[in-house]
Every structure is written in structure tokens, then in C-alpha cells.
């Protein structure tokens, strides 16, 4: 197995450029290869959730905070887009940014009171917040349309073309996803990213090194919330209709399960998680009530067997306390 992986790695090293060109070409012409609108819809969902789960992974996987009610931020972004687009006819592309920024600010305000406390307080606050946002969306009828939701959200246009079918939307989600991965990758490898990771690994040590824990935690949280807002804004015109039932606690758990199953602390993890969970959703469509049970069992199984997730960061606290066992192995080897 190891040999096999090594071969792949060395081949990849040799033909790196070609592999990248082929991959990007495949991604570009992908919609042309898939005739069915149904499959395309599923692919769009995977792409969309990959970024959304990725934004949650920034919070849960990189700084070791635990956000549970991510659906709340997603909801804010979606409603901002829907309301501003239908009532004030603001351009979709502008609203992506606006939705992200407002969501980030709200996220920062929510996280602020919990900064003095352990992470668990943030988890509960986000959980409660998610429910509160849904309740506000449901009850603030004059703005959000209440239980009727917001209807007739216009599809975005680009250079005169209207992008409405899943095939066209595929490119929107793809571009947002690529931008997300690109930007996040750069941040993770920078001073900010290493501060996040050091907080996750050992908060005490990070503090002794002069890292401003509170500042970086809130920065991290706002960054995650920003992308959740962006995805919300991108999602609203895709479905053309939103109401508060889209953003229940179950939706938050759905996103969370993608991150946990796919893997925390790596960029590829949430993408895999989105693919696995959404495929599972399609497979279990006829037993829809068992769907969440399946996710729950998967989450528990992950925690028992592989806490960092399928392709999560193995070399981190996320993987549990495997270090002791490994140390013994290393020592045994040295003795030989």
C-alpha cells in the first residue's frame, strides 16, 4: 500500500504540470460530459457544500474552536442576498461580497462574549444563535416574508448571459470554490495560519509565545463566517426561493457531519466529506428518515476510529492522543 502511494507521489512529482492541466480541463468541460440535469444538480450540491463545509473547517479544523450552528451564518448570507436582490435590485456579484462581510461582522459580534471562556461556550452560543436567526427569519414578516419566504430571486447575469441552470451554476460554484481554496491555502501557510494552528495545538504555549489568542480566534471565526455568508448569498438565487426551513439545526449538523467525516484540518477533507455525504444522501433518498441516522452513526464511528476524519490532519491534536503509542514504537525501533 505504501509502495503504491509512493509511486503515485513520484509520478505526480514528474508530471505535475500535465496533471494540473488535465484536471482543470476536466473540471471545465465536466458539464458537457454529463447530460443529465439531475446528476448535474447533485454535482452542484457537492461543489456548493464543499466550500460551505470548507468554511466551517477553517473554524473547527484550523483553530480548534467548535462552531456547530454554521447554518445560522449561511442563513444570514442567503437572506441578505435574497432581500437586497428582490427589493433593491443590487447586482449578484456585489451581494456576494456584501453578504460575506455582514455575516463576518455578525459572526465576530457573536463570538466576542465567549472569548474569555473555553471553547464549549462558543459551541453552545453558535447553536443557539443558529436557532435564533431561523426564528427571526420566520417571524420578521415585513422583511423576510415570514413563513412564506422570499420568492422570485433573480438569477445572476454575467456579460449579458443569465446563469440559471445547474450546468451554468456549476461554474459559479466552481469559481467561488477555487477562490476559497486559493485564498485559504495562502492564509493557512502564512503567519496568521500558523497562529491559528498553534492555538489549536497548545493554547498555553501559543500565549507564552506572544500570540494574541483572542485576536486570532475572532479573526478565524470571522473568516469562516465570511465564507459561509458568501455561500449563502450564492445559494439563494440558485434555489430562487428561500424560507426559514432551509436553515434548521439539522442543516447545521449536515454541514458539520461533512467536515467531521471528510476530515478536519486539511483543505481536501471537507471536499471529500461533501462528496461522501451528498452521495449518501442521494443513495438514501428513498429512506430519507434514516439519512440523519446514518450521518450520526458515521460521526460516532469516525470519533471512535479516526477522530481527524477520512483525510484529516493526522499530525495534530485532532487525531486524538496517538502520540504515546507512536513514541513507544519509535523507541522500540531504536532499541533494535
Amino acid at each position: 500500500m505504501k509502495h503504491f502511494i509512493d509511486t503515485i507521489k513520484s509520478t505526480y512529482g514528474k508530471y505535475k504540470v500535465i496533471v494540473w492541466i488535465i484536471c482543470s480541463l476536466l473540471l471545465l468541460i465536466f458539464p458537457a460530459l454529463i447530460p443529465s440535469n439531475y446528476v448535474m444538480g447533485v454535482v452542484c450540491r457537492i461543489l456548493f457544500y464543499a466550500t460551505l463545509a470548507g468554511s466551517l473547517n477553517v473554524i473547527n479544523g484550523y483553530s480548534g474552536q467548535m462552531c456547530i450552528g454554521h447554518a445560522g451564518f449561511f442563513c444570514i448570507g442567503a437572506y441578505i442576498e435574497a432581500i437586497l436582490a428582490t427589493q433593491y435590485h443590487i447586482n449578484f456579484w456585489v451581494l456576494l461580497l456584501v453578504g460575506g462581510i455582514i455575516t463576518a461582522i455578525i459572526g465576530g459580534l457573536i463570538a466576542l462574549p465567549t472569548l474569555r471562556m473555553q471553547g464549549i461556550y462558543l459551541s453552545i452560543i453558535t447553536l443557539g444563535f443558529s436557532e435564533v436567526v431561523r426564528l427571526i427569519a420566520l417571524n420578521w414578516t415585513s422583511v423576510t416574508g415570514g413563513a412564506m419566504g422570499v420568492k422570485g430571486i433573480k438569477s445572476p447575469t454575467l456579460l449579458g448571459f443569465t446563469l440559471s441552470s445547474p450546468k451554468q451554476y456549476y461554474y459559479i460554484f466552481l469559481v467561488i470554490g477555487i477562490v476559497f481554496i486559493f485564498v485559504t491555502n495562502r492564509i493557512i501557510n502564512s503567519r496568521t495560519g500558523s497562529a491559528w494552528i498553534s492555538i489549536r495545538e497548545d493554547e498555553l504555549a501559543a500565549r507564552s509565545l506572544g500570540i494574541e489568542i483572542k485576536k486570532y480566534k475572532i479573526l478565524n471565526f470571522m473568516y469562516g463566517a465570511f465564507w459561509a455568508g458568501v455561500m449563502g448569498a450564492a445559494y439563494a438565487p440558485y434555489t430562487r426561493y428561500i424560507d426559514s426551513t432551509y436553515f434548521s439545526l439539522d442543516e447545521g449538523f449536515n454541514i458539520l457531519s461533512m467536515v467531521i467525516i471528510g476530515g478536519q484540518g486539511t483543505l481536501i477533507g471537507p471536499i471529500l466529506g461533501a462528496a461522501v455525504v451528498n452521495s449518501l444522501t442521494e443513495l438514501l433518498r428513498s429512506f430519507s428518515e434514516w439519512r440523519m441516522v446514518a450521518y450520526a452513526v458515521l460521526i460516532i464511528a469516525m470519533m471512535w476510529l479516526r477522530p481527524q476524519g477520512l483525510v484529516g490532519a493526522s499530525d495534530s491534536v485532532l487525531a486524538g492522543d496517538k502520540m504515546k503509542k507512536k513514541k513507544i514504537k519509535v523507541l522500540a525501533k531504536e532499541e533494535k
Binding site: 494552528i197 498553534s198 495545538e201 497548545d202 504555549a205 507564552s208 499530525d315 502520540m323
Partner: peptide, 10 residues
């Protein structure tokens, strides 16, 4: 620190 606080996975 008294109990070593290294980033032990790094």
C-alpha cells in the same frame, strides 16, 4: 513550562 508545552505534532 514545568510540563513541557511543545506543539508535539509539529
Amino acid at each position: 513550562f514545568q510540563n513541557i508545552q511543545l506543539f508535539k505534532y509539529m
